[in-house]
Design a protein around this nucleic acid. Structure first.
Length: 628
DNA sequence: GTTAGGG
DNA sequence: CCCTAAC
């Protein structure tokens, strides 16, 4: 999407089909986002969209309302909104004085599914919007809605969106980009349509949908919805296009003519929604748009021919929703609903990450979705499809196909995917990527680090004290000889040796366990019992600050393994066959003792009083005895 | 913070 | 040795 276009960021929202709301207790809500530039509608999750509310509100831009229609997605351009922030911060908050328009597009659903769905539009009585999903959000949005105070709280949730004339240039650019596609479009199958930019020109001028070929209808569909379709049903295509252009699911069955992106009926009368609820200021703004030659048949607003449908169509959708629909259609609707299923139960990790996002959002300092998208892109290439949303910063937003309520849609793969071991990598990733959003990125890092700290992640510490990393080892005066004798180390080094400092960035310096340490560990286990690692550490490893209780536990686990695997071999051979000579072999006597201790403590269940082992195997060495 | 367990 | 969950 273009930066200039952001002023009028098409925050298009549209609910696809008016479904029966009841019975869809827990639908996954997507919001359609129209990405400027190519007009692609990209579903975004509620969480993603929420991140940008502040920006919209700050700039007094309407947010599309949430129209919960069961499994129907609401799409909404989070990416647009995000980029909008920086753009608006440039002082170009002229939204309220520029073109006002609304384009409500129908959701981007799988054609194959919609095909049957299309004829199952719910009757008017079913069109009431259920807000129980997001009632608070809706109302708050309305409270902030200074531009379009139209009623949309109960039966109509369509909201106008502020546009500006930058779309004109943007659309022209899109048209220019789409021309190559035009050259190859005629007479070709839909599968050959690969242009990244919809051909908006298909809707320019006067076009009678009835006269278009399937291919042309498909192109018009693409121009309308920003995505390709493989449906070859003319009726369906016409209907979908009309619905998209009118923002209504109720369209004339035939005879529609598209003129400059507006719909006219057979009589040449523009299909215009009623404007009774549209503020006068909007109508005036609409009338300012003069880009296109207006069809004389536009009886009402002959001068208002914007590329994007303005609010009047929104109102029209209201009016059209009163059109009755046959009962069999309703039956189809119900049948369709029955197939709706919840999918992708979020994983715990996913919930956590979503929570992170929301937390950041609440601070008003949000992370850059471009960053996340880019990051996710590296991790999720398997889902990347040829469809890319392009923004003004030339950052591509690959999408993946997702299943939604039995339908398939392209979903930007942001936030919904688990990141594997992400945080430290993410930080380094951000650090290495200075960009336009540098400030945002750093804010993000800070927020994330803070969050990480709250979560007990150690990345924050690592980030705050990176210089310590290099000083760790060198400062250690500790010297280990082959016998595992540890010389000394200073208190200062003890402090610096805290392993946590390294975590998140570098691996803790590996310190081979010396025989002395092993003996201390074994003695400690004998005294305190396995599992009392903290006590053992305090008692026997107080001077080995780099040995944490976790280290003791790990080592003991390894000793047990060794005692169970190596010991028989040692017994047989009498001489240990260590594959790695650099590793100090653990004397069989110690392994035996480990084994006995392990067996004893595992059998005995509760570890009884400190048992002074009685040298079961005679040659058990006790030289490392006393704790320091 | 500690411990257990998987990686 | 790292990471996480569970406590």
């Amino acid at each position: 999407m273009e930066v200039e276009g952001l002023q009028g960021a098409l925050v298009n929202k549209c609910a696809e089909n008016e479904f029966e709301k009841k019975g869809c207790s827990d639908p996954m809500i997507y919001q359609l986002v129209r990405v400027e530039g190519d007009g692609t509608l990209v579903p975004a999750t509620e969480d993603e969209v929420l991140q940008f509310e502040d920006y919209l509100h700050d700039e007094k831009v309407d947010l599309p309302s949430i129209e919960d229609v069961g499994h129907v997605e609401e799409l909404f351009s989070k990416d647009c909104m995000l980029l909008k922030k920086s753009d608006l911060e440039d002082g170009s908050s002229k939204l309220e004085t520029t073109e006002v328009g609304t384009k409500l597009l129908c959701a981007d659903l799988e054609e194959s599914s919609l095909h049957s769905l299309d004829d199952s539009l719910s009757p008017p009585s079913k069109c009431t919007v259920v807000h129980d999903q997001q009632p608070d959000k809706l109302h708050s949005e309305q409270g902030d809605n200074n531009i379009t105070p139209q009623e949309n709280t109960s039966t109509e949730t369509a909201k106008s969106t502020v546009l500006n004339d930058s779309f004109i240039a943007e659309k022209d650019r899109a048209n220019a980009c789409s021309r190559p596609a035009d050259d190859t479009s005629t007479g070709q199958t839909d599968s050959q349509v690969t242009s990244s930019v919809p051909d908006f020109s298909i809707l320019r001028g006067e076009v009678c949908l009835d006269e278009l070929t399937i291919r042309e209808l498909q192109e018009a569909f693409r121009a309308t919805f920003g995505r390709q379709t493989t449906v070859k049903d003319k009726v369906w295509l016409k209907r979908r296009i009309t619905m998209g252009l009118m923002n209504s699911c109720y369209v004339p069955s035939s005879g529609c003519v598209v003129k400059n992106y507006k719909i006219f009926d057979k009589d040449g009368k523009e299909v215009i929604p009623n404007t009774e609820e549209i503020p006068e200021v909007e109508l005036q703004a609409i009338s300012l748009v003069k880009d296109q030659v207006i069809s004389p048949v536009n009886e009402r607003n002959s001068s208002s021919s914007s590329y994007y449908q303005s609010d009047d169509q929104q109102g029209f959708s209201k009016r059209l929703k009163r059109v009755s629909i046959t009962n069999d259609e309703q039956g189809n609707l119900l049948a369709e609903q029955s197939t709706i299923k919840r999918i992708r139960k979020p994983t715990k990790r996913f919930i956590e990450e979503v929570s992170d996002i929301e937390t950041r959002d609440s601070t008003g300092k949000l992370s850059s979705p471009a960053k996340r998208a880019a990051h996710d892109e590296m991790l999720l290439k398997q889902w990347v499809t040829p469809f890319h949303e392009v923004d003004s910063l030339r950052t591509s937003y690959p999408t993946r196909k997702d299943t939604l309520g039995g339908l398939s849609v392209h979903v930007p793969y942001v936030s919904r995917i688990r990141r594997g071991r992400p945080r430290k990598d993410f930080i380094s990733f951000v650090d290495k990527k200075p960009s336009v959003k540098c400030s945002e990125a750093q804010t993000t890092v800070g927020v994330m680090l803070k969050k990480d700290g709250e979560e007990g992640n150690h990345a924050r510490k690592a980030f705050e004290a990176p210089p310590m990393v290099n000083s760790l080892k060198g400062d250690h005066s500790e010297v280990l000889d082959n016998k595992g004798v540890q010389k000394q180390q200073t208190n200062a080094n003890n402090a610096a040796a805290k392993p946590k400092i390294n975590r998140g960035f570098t691996r803790k310096h590996h310190r081979a366990w010396t025989l002395c340490e092993v003996l201390k560990l074994v003695d400690g286990v004998a005294l305190y019992g396995a599992g009392k690692w903290s006590e053992i550490r305090k008692a026997a490893f107080s001077s080995y600050s780099y040995r944490t209780s976790v280290d003791l536990k790990d080592k003991w686990r390894n000793l047990i393994r060794a005692s169970q695997t190596q010991l028989p071999t040692l017994k047989d051979d009498g001489c240990p066959r260590k594959t790695n000579p650099s590793i100090v072999p653990i004397p069989p006597s110690i392994l035996l003792r480990v084994k006995e201790l392990n067996e004893l403590q595992s059998q005995g269940g509760v570890f009884t009083a400190p048992v002074k082992f009685s040298a079961p195997k005679s040659n058990v060495v006790q030289k490392g005895s006393g704790f320091l």
